[in-house]
Design a protein around this nucleic acid. Structure first.
Lengths: 344, 344
DNA sequence: CACGTTTTTGGGAACGTTTGCACACTTTTT
DNA sequence: AAAAAGTGTGCAAACGTTCCCAAAAACGTG
């Protein structure tokens, strides 16, 4: 009882034409007479003909699909990026296949290889926080798979990349904490491997330097698993609190929410005394207590730009040699008034 | 410079065998001698052979992929369901293609048709809040596309379905509000079309009835777009407040967070006086202020169960005539102490 | 009206698989 | 010793497209 769609052959037979003629008519080729085209199109419409994309893929050796790897779709930042990707991809007649690495290198590699065997035409990827060895991506790339990195990018890979202005985002957030009177500002961040970790650390340091505040390495805590495990975060908070920070700058979505959660859970009495500024694209920040200052990344736009670059690579006739790294500005959303916070 | 993977033909040629022998050896068929199998497998390993899934799909007339339609992946409930789906699908060698309806009927239909033309082997779908006409799904189903509904299911469609115990979840939440002393309990809910809306309304009514509280229709507000537009929510809140509710039971993830947001924005002075109990799978509820009581659905499990049912349909040799509707229990997570709330 | 041109159409191979069938060879059975 | 059964392999068709190449039809032109 399977689905029996009509094919080019059926149309050809019904109309007494050859499959080649029908195929060309449907693709609106110049060689076919207007008359025949109309005939074919009308009949195709009538029988509700849909080209079989599988057959087309096999013949054309491409699938019109692009693979996406993110660490987690249940993450505001990534789901917004995905929306951006889709908005462009569907317009250009590509469809997307989403995979999650769950911040695991092994899973990431597995997923990429699975996608590659599914003959994706290109790959959009934000590296997992565990990833250090990207040779498997190099292999695929050298075999002709177009790849565009976004958000978490490797520094030694020549291809298009799209990132937020992490330095400035971090700088702004840290400066905001300083300007609101905080003296001891800690920094909670992701795995050291990640590009975003390095850039955001620099922004943090630059803001401190601007206001002549000494940078203390012990105020910086790294989380190898990007806050996937709450134990990791609670440990970091536990180590940080004895140093009496009155502000914390946090460098990723999951860490930001996770850290507040850990603070509330382990030290509720100080949670509201420490000012928090962190990267997050959550649309629920307004509900959070304690409230926080957030650095929002242009996630949707990042997805769009990355997809445009990828499609341009896929459709390029000649190999590309000039690569761009697009940098998009972040937005600082300052903490709400404490009044609202205290009473709600 | 495209990717040139090795094929069965290449192996056959290299080994002096026919493609059929190689194919059978790779699929470990009984007809092939152990010797030949070893030879083929070793060589395949050596050249890193990957079967071309496109060719296989074309030949076998199935794609080993299943389509998923949800309203929004940036929704905790749905992203957890998706994780559950993936956990089963990947094990069984299916891959998943995710599409979002954004609560739009038109978009939903478009996506489903797009997926169908991509020859998915089966469909998992939670209807959009706008959807009333499901005849397009009936068409596909009658043409042989297996479909399993989850969460938002139609009542007049004979197939497998997986839902939460919406009645009990709603009952528990409402009862909780009553037991904590609330007298005027409003109900904010989704579009009337949705199955979940009806079931949750019944649970709400039953709880009221149990405690001899009169049901007042004016205390129930429907949101056609499931809270996708903040204006819709603000309007609902505006209409509700004059009735002086001291508790609100809210029936979906997005509405719950959206309603608190709207309350805080439009009437901050009463926001902390109204107790909220709502369906939500957000893992950030502990951070919310005002805090709330939440009804959590077993989202991951729902995805798993739905996928198992779908795969059983796909792989069934005979048409299925007996359908199940699995009902999974929800969990009530009670509001934290007000003390923690007031001070954080 | 015979010829070259242009326009329109059809034949058939190819993309990489899977699989029914036939064939050759070996072993067992009668 | 012949027939039957079993074992291992190859041929070729098929899935639904696209596109190269050739053939047919229509059209000018001298």
């Amino acid at each position: 009882m399977r689905f029996e769609p009509s094919t080019i052959k059926d149309i050809a037979k019904a109309l007494g034409l050859s499959t080649s003629t029908v195929s060309r008519a449907l693709r609106d080729r110049y060689e076919i007479s207007e008359e025949t085209k109309k005939l074919v199109l009308a009949y195709a419409e009538k029988v509700n003909y849909r080209a079989n994309p599988i057959a087309r893929s096999l013949k054309e050796r491409r699938s019109y699909s692009i693979g996406i790897i993110v660490s987690e779709i249940a993450n505001n930042f990534f789901s917004q990026v995905i929306n951006g990707i889709e908005s462009i991809a569907y317009d250009r007649d590509y469809h997307v296949i989403i995979s999650q690495s769950h911040e695991s290198y092994k899973q990431e590699k597995l997923n990429v290889e699975h996608l590659a065997s599914r003959s994706i035409d290109g790959l959009l990827i934000a590296l997992s926080s565990e990833t250090q060895d990207i040779s498997y991506l190099r292999d695929l790339y050298s075999k002709g798979l177009p790849i565009v990195f976004f958000d978490r990018v490797p520094d030694d890979f020549e291809t298009h990349k799209v990132i937020a202005n992490n330095f400035k985002g971090a700088f702004d957030a840290t400066e905001h904490l300083i300007l609101s009177g905080k003296k001891v500002i800690a920094h909670l961040t992701n795995s050291e491997n990640l590009s975003i970790t390095k850039e955001r650390l620099k922004g943090y340091q630059a803001a401190l330097a601007k206001y002549h505040i000494e940078f203390k390495p012990e105020l910086v805590k790294y989380c190898q698993h990007g806050g996937m495990h709450s134990a990791e975060l609670e440990q970091a908070v536990k180590e940080l609190l004895p140093l009496k920070p009155d502000g914390i700058f946090i460098s990723s979505d999951r860490l930001t929410t996770g850290c507040i959660m850990a603070l509330k859970k382990t030290n509720p009495e100080v949670a509201h005394k420490i000012a928090i500024a962190g990267f997050t694209n959550s649309n629920l920040v307004e509900l959070f207590s304690p409230s926080l200052t957030s650095v929002k990344q242009p996630a949707f736009e990042m997805g769009q730009v990355a997809t445009e670059l990828l499609i341009s690579m896929i459709e390029a006739k000649r190999p590309i040699t000039e690569f761009e790294t697009k940098v998009l500005d972040t937005e600082l959303v300052k903490m709400q008034k404490t009044v609202g916070n205290r009473f709600l």
